[in-house]
């Protein structure tokens, strides 16, 4: 069954059609890759699904069978869609643990004033919260930094924390925006190892935008290729790799020398 479905998904910014009638299914429990050259609409797609942008009329986004088209971002988040950002964007003035609790607390149910009087139910809920957050922290390897301000972490640790923060929302669908960008090959392997571990433990469905083709080819079950807001290819990684249209989109004749160089640099990294 498809966890995330889009039908006739479109988005225009003035005259620019960033996404055009995109039909895409992300199967439950799968790892779905989304690739395409710069400006092909990957980020717009993320923003449409998470409710940051409003879709054009006629578009439909369904999550777990429910029509969530144009829901507010926080409502979509609560239904189980979480994402990371290429630029991480952590709450840098909060501690590592608090960064996670922001996401986690959207699920805890107790009255606003209750923590001040601390009835037993709140104590228990808070205990559960910190236990499950410490479990998460030890998976991503940041348990010893729980009380450190997020702004003081190293680059790699911040990336792990952004992953943890998304996981704290206990999502069904985790959307990763270029998780491996700027990491060394060893660290990419470590990170993807953690991601796969999380997937197995929590039964996630993953949607990954990634420029490093090796990551996509190695981990994804299925890949969708976008170009100019349209789907130009879809299938298993090896099928997509041999697809003529896809190769042309990445390395095609119509690209300027500069773009080709950039594409090569990205693919070779």
């Amino acid at each position: 069954m498809a966890l995330l479905e889009t039908r006739m998904l479109s988005k225009s910014f003035g005259g620019l059609r960033a996404i055009q009638q995109l039909e895409m299914d992300v199967e439950e429990g799968s790892i779905h890759g989304l690739i395409g050259p710069n400006g092909s609409g990957k980020s717009t797609f993320f923003n449409l699904v998470t409710g940051v942008y409003k879709t054009d009329p006629g578009s439909v986004v369904r999550f777990a069978g429910e029509d969530i088209t144009n829901f507010e971002a926080h409502e979509i988040g609560r239904r189980g869609v979480a994402r990371t950002f290429q630029l991480l964007r952590l709450f840098s003035e909060m501690t590592v643990l608090q960064n996670l609790l922001v996401g986690y607390h959207t699920h805890t149910k107790y009255a606003a004033a209750a923590p001040i009087f601390r009835p037993r139910s709140v104590v228990r809920a808070d205990q559960e919260a910190s236990e499950s957050m410490f479990e998460l922290l030890s998976i991503i390897g940041l348990a010893e930094f729980a009380d450190m301000p997020a702004g003081e972490l190293s680059g790699g640790q911040r990336r792990l924390l952004s992953l943890g923060r998304a996981m704290a929302m206990r999502p069904k669908l985790l959307m990763l925006d270029e998780p491996a960008a700027g990491l060394s090959p060893t660290n990419v392997d470590v990170l993807m190892g953690i991601v796969l571990d999380l997937k197995k433990r929590y039964g996630l469905t993953l949607l990954i935008v990634e420029h490093i083709l090796k990551v996509v080819m190695d981990t994804c079950d299925r890949v969708t290729v976008l170009d100019h807001g349209q789907k130009i290819g879809e299938g298993a990684p090896h099928e997509v790799k041999d697809d003529h249209a896809v190769v042309e989109a990445y390395l095609g004749k119509e690209m300027s020398d500069e773009e080709v160089r950039a594409a090569f640099a990205k693919a070779a990294r």
Partner: peptide, 11 residues
């Protein structure tokens, strides 16, 4: 600290 992110975190 960041309204956009807070929104996406379900707040």
């Amino acid at each position: 600290q960041n309204k956009d992110i807070a929104f996406l975190m379900g707040i």
